[in-house]
Design a protein around this nucleic acid. Structure first.
Length: 113
DNA sequence: CGATTGACGTACG
DNA sequence: TCGTACGCCAATC
């Protein structure tokens, strides 16, 4: 078990903890894990989330602006937006409406035990 | 082994 | 408010 592998597992664990109808950002996860500004590593971890079990709701993870930048990495790009809308999140032009309202920060939410 | 890239983020003009 | 520049760290070429 290397550091990178455990980091991936930590990312998957947090992403699975995201409540339905909520979203978070790569930076928020990175900050929570202590990787700081290396939010790119979170994105790289998500790249390895394919085929994971239990499934990793990667569609609930977007960039700091609420843009679905990673939708192109799904089996079907439209699937990401479809899943989000299915959970009650409104997506317009690859951007989440009321992103700030639906935002779920692990550093805060998980702080309440 | 050096250069490039990337599911990001912040700073600056 | 929007577009561009740069920093981050690991993987890939």
């Amino acid at each position: 078990m290397t550091k990178t592998e455990s980091f991936f597992l930590d990312v998957f664990e947090i992403v699975r903890l995201i409540p339905k109808g909520r979203v978070t950002s790569y930076g928020a996860i990175a900050k929570y894990l202590g990787t700081g500004k290396s939010a790119r590593m979170v994105g790289w971890a998500m790249n390895a989330s394919h085929g994971q079990n239990p499934k990793v709701p990667a569609h609930r993870v977007v960039n700091s602006k609420g843009l679905l930048t990673g939708k192109f990495h799904f089996s079907d790009p439209n699937q990401m937006q479809e899943l989000l809308e299915k959970e009650g999140i409104v997506v317009k032009d690859d951007q989440i409406k009321d992103y700030k309202t639906h935002f779920w920060d692990p550093a805060i939410e998980l702080e309440i035990e």
